[in-house]
Write a protein that binds this DNA or RNA. Structure first.
Lengths: 337, 337
DNA sequence: CTGAAAGCGCTTACAG
DNA sequence: CTGAAAGCGCTTACAG
């Protein structure tokens, strides 16, 4: 059977289709009696309003976009994403909106993806993994696509942003290590083209410098276990290796920790190790991983709220979230003397 | 400025809007000259066709749906998902389609999610994590929503399916362990309400039984590191503990392996451990994890192709993918005698 | 090869 | 409190 339309419902309820529409949108008071007749007719005909027709009439698609230009392997090890998305959905579902996701292999396809979204598929987008001089800022501007940046750093772009200051996490980690007596501390960063990775690295350097410590023990990783392992190998092969390594995510830290153990470097006795993310696994390795925790679900919620406000035309202020907070576990200990 | 519409383009090119439409859809031969005029007019006006209007006119939304009813923590540790999605997108992007994702906290919201999708937001859905007597089978049927099951098991439902036989992975693992001389082999399963977890477990039991080995060493986990750890603790506390444990995913295996080491059980000397998934981290722990690998990107591709065929009304056959294949690493070794 | 027009199924001023 | 009608911006038979 062909699906019922608003006309069928209106006819059966003996009202105009405008009235049927109003019953559902609640934009006008409808007499209780009419309301009930309409609802019954809709139920009888098993009718639900078509979101396609509604989208055209309202010029709203009730969808937001999320484009990921990352290697699936990196996304897979990313503990941030799923929780973040759950937070986003929690907000969107209250207003019956959805999120359109796209995973693209490179920046060319990324550009195409935004173009396609801007044809009216979405009402706005969330920008993740901002890069230095990110081309997407121009893209969304030229497409007049409402956008909110999901940042882990101070706002660089003049767009609304929902952010957590990763620098605070880095400082918390360094405070912790310095308190334990460490003075040769290294950092394995993420790709420094990312604003967040760069920000963690910059904070690492400036914090150490402020305290008169050597800020030069840095190796760039790419968030994969593979890179965590090789960066650790490089650092430990030095003449005077660090007594502590801070990694820019948990996965690299777990791989690095494991590598250290495999060559007979005891953690935390000979080497302290810290992660960044607080992934579920991190708590259950031996030793468990000292890291930094952020409420990513709340982050997703705030980002979604900002974007909805921005779409509605509100003047949205940057949302600043709490954290990241230190999670002190067993991979860090007093510096070997 | 208000965005240009097809009427503006038609006027500027001096043709009817039907012709403009046909230039883009390629459904009719258009003279090269007209074509160029239209394209230039569109470029001048910075026009792109509205997908909202197209969706209404064609009764197609060019979107497929994906609903995840899982704890974000579990999704986060799921190495399957990102690669799978990348495969799906690779196929969809060639036909300019997208995927609408929804993460819901429970089965009630899941039902709502499908209902909302069925209002014309998507043309079809992919069903992940099928459960025994899964309510979604009835839901999609009653909503006339084209659906394809992403399965790790023989087809239980009469819907088209793209599947990998996880049972083969389990058999490969057991063959490997038995060859190494193990005879007390345990399994830490996923939630047995899931068809795939149940299928791995059933295969585990029947395979051991066939070879005259004890199939009763089973603990149910939930795919989290926490559960891997506690299940391992339970198994190792037995009077005659197993000499090998097969875990239903890598995360539980990594946590279990780590726990064993922490109580002085050497891996693989005292205990062999296997995972399931081949996550990136698994290769970089010490010891590296013996596990089973599936090409999840290809899986995503095949699932998307099946769904597109199904939406188009084709009679799609089940897609059976290769694997899972054994990845023999260092967490397995000869049984201690 | 091209045009005129109906139609997709809603929403929303405008009138009463 | 409700109705009639225009409009959202495309696609697609139908005609020529």
């Amino acid at each position: 059977m062909p699906r019922a339309t608003i006309d069928d419902v209106a006819a059966r309820a003996g009202v105009s289709k405008g009235t049927v529409s109003l019953v559902y949108s609640g934009k006008r008071t409808i007499s209780e009696e009419t309301r009930e007749r309409v609802l019954r007719a809709a139920a009888d005909l098993d009718w639900v309003p078509s979101s396609r027709a509604r989208a055209l009439a309202t010029r709203r698609s009730s969808t937001i976009g999320l484009v990921l230009a990352r290697d699936p392997d990196v996304i897979a090890t990313d503990t941030f994403f799923a929780g973040f998305l759950a937070g986003v959905e929690a907000v969107l579902s209250t207003v019956d909106m959805g999120v359109l996701m796209q995973v693209v292999p490179d920046h060319d396809r990324e550009r195409d993806a935004y173009r396609s979204l801007a044809r009216g598929r979405v009402d706005g987008v969330l920008l993740l993994d901002l890069e230095i001089d990110d081309a997407r800022l121009d893209i969304v501007r030229s497409l007049s696509l409402p956008a909110v940046i999901v940042g882990a750093h101070p706002n660089p772009a003049g767009l609304p942003q929902a952010h957590v200051d990763d620098g605070r996490g880095m400082v918390a980690l360094l405070d912790h290590l310095i308190e334990l007596g460490h003075s040769r501390i290294a950092h394995v960063s993420g790709p420094v083209g990312y604003v967040h990775a760069r920000h963690r690295l910059d904070t690492f350097r400036s914090s150490l410098r402020e305290r008169g410590l050597d800020p030069s023990l840095v190796v760039e990783g790419d968030f994969t276990a593979q890179s965590g392992r090789s960066a650790t190998a490089e650092l430990l092969a030095a003449e005077t290796p660090p007594t502590a390594i801070t990694f820019a995510n948990d996965v690299m830290a777990m791989a690095g920790l494991s590598y250290a153990q495999s060559i007979g470097v005891a953690v935390p006795d000979d080497l302290s190790v810290t992660g960044f993310d607080d992934s579920e696994l991190a708590a259950h390795l031996t030793p468990s991983l000292t890291t930094v925790h952020t409420d990513v679900v709340a982050w997703g919620r705030r980002a979604a709220e900002s974007l909805l406000g921005h779409i509605a035309g509100d003047d949205v202020a940057d949302a600043v979230l709490d954290g990241p907070h230190l999670v002190n576990r067993n991979s860090t200990g007093p510096a070997a003397s």
